[in-house]
Amino acid sequence: MANYMTKTAVAATAASVMAMTASMASADTWRYAFEEAIDEVQGIFAQKFKEEIEANSDHTVQLFPYGTLGESADTMEQAQAGILQFVDQSPGFTGSLIPEAQVFFVPYLLPQDTEALGEFFRTSKAINEMFPELYAEQGLELLVMFPEGEVCMTTQEPVTGPPDLNEVKFRVMTNPLLVESYKAFGATPTPLPWGEVYGALQTGIIQGQENPMFFIESTKMYEVTEVITCAGHNNFTTAVMANQDFYDGLSEDEQQMIDDAMDVAFEHIIDYQKGLHEESIEKIKAAKPEMQVNVLTEEERTPFIEAAADVEATFLEMTGESGAAILEQMKADLEAVTN
């Protein structure tokens, strides 16, 4: 598990960033925070974006991996306040801010086929036309959304169906719909900030969590759990945003440069992830040969798929007409790339 900064150090770093912002009339250093380590998927994306911006302008992009400026809630506040120019944050954390973004946690909505998934994120009207308006209401310019890989569960005991999750305290992001998903799956959902998860698993406060395979491997979650279960229920999605006032204050040429850099980084990260899931499993098994990695059969997935219908209904209750419109459009967008 990564050694994250103390609260004092985080506060000091954030204060220095604020001071830097206040002293610069026209910032040529752009600050970009994300939720993972520099060598994880969001970090790889950020590095490619930085490379493109610095190759095509006089600007410098300063990267802040997870923990350097606090938890996800802290970096979102800093992005909205203009202390950060860019922030990469999963809808899992923005769900309370933008309820419709919770649609990405409706189980079995997104396909696991990587080619279809990539094309969906490239062409989706819901993502590229409808979501930007919702983010703008929160002072954020939505630049891109991209997938990070199939989400799998880690637990202490094997999971072949919802009964195996009964009374399992399962860590979830602070996202209302994800809480409802794991209730539907039979577990006891327990929202926790990411920085507390490894220790909570180690001490038995919780017994399970979910993440893409690369993240399970890189954060060594396998050290404190015994079984990985892939039920095909979701693919982790993240979103890169800019502070709206910052973006709107740029020239059209600079806005286009940012958009182009995001496009290059998107294609880079889609290509980077090819085979990453399988490579991560191999690394986990090499580090812990006794680790069980199970992929549920279609028959075993059926009860989870049936439970997903209740979660979708809950999403519609939470979000009303706007959520229904988003969900309908996403289904149409997905059908266009899968049929």
Rank of each mutant, 00 (worst) to 15 (best):
A14H: 06
A14G: 03
M18C: 11
S23D: 09
A25M: 12
A25Y: 04
S26D: 12
A27M: 03
D28S: 13
D28W: 05
T29F: 00
W30K: 08
Y32E: 05
E35W: 02
E36H: 14
E36G: 06
A37L: 14
A37I: 04
A37Y: 06
I38C: 00
E40N: 07
V41L: 05
G43F: 13
I44R: 13
K48L: 07
E51R: 11
E52M: 13
N56E: 10
H59I: 03
T60H: 14
P65S: 09
Y66N: 10
S72V: 08
S72N: 12
A73Q: 10
M76V: 12
Q78N: 01
A79W: 04
Q80R: 15
Q85E: 15
V87D: 13
V87M: 01
D88E: 11
G92L: 03
G92W: 06
F93T: 07
T94D: 10
T94E: 00
G95D: 12
S96M: 14
L97Y: 15
P99T: 15
E100G: 02
A101C: 01
A101W: 13
Q102E: 13
F104H: 15
F104E: 07
F105P: 01
Y108Q: 05
Y108P: 01
L110T: 07
P111M: 11
P111N: 07
P111K: 11
D113Y: 08
T114I: 04
A116R: 11
L117S: 04
F121E: 01
F121P: 02
S124G: 05
S124C: 01
K125T: 15
A126G: 05
N128F: 04
E129W: 08
M130E: 10
F131P: 12
P132G: 04
L134W: 10
Y135W: 14
Y135L: 00
E137S: 13
Q138S: 10
V144M: 13
V151L: 12
V151Y: 01
M153F: 15
T154F: 03
T155N: 08
Q156G: 06
E157V: 06
E157A: 08
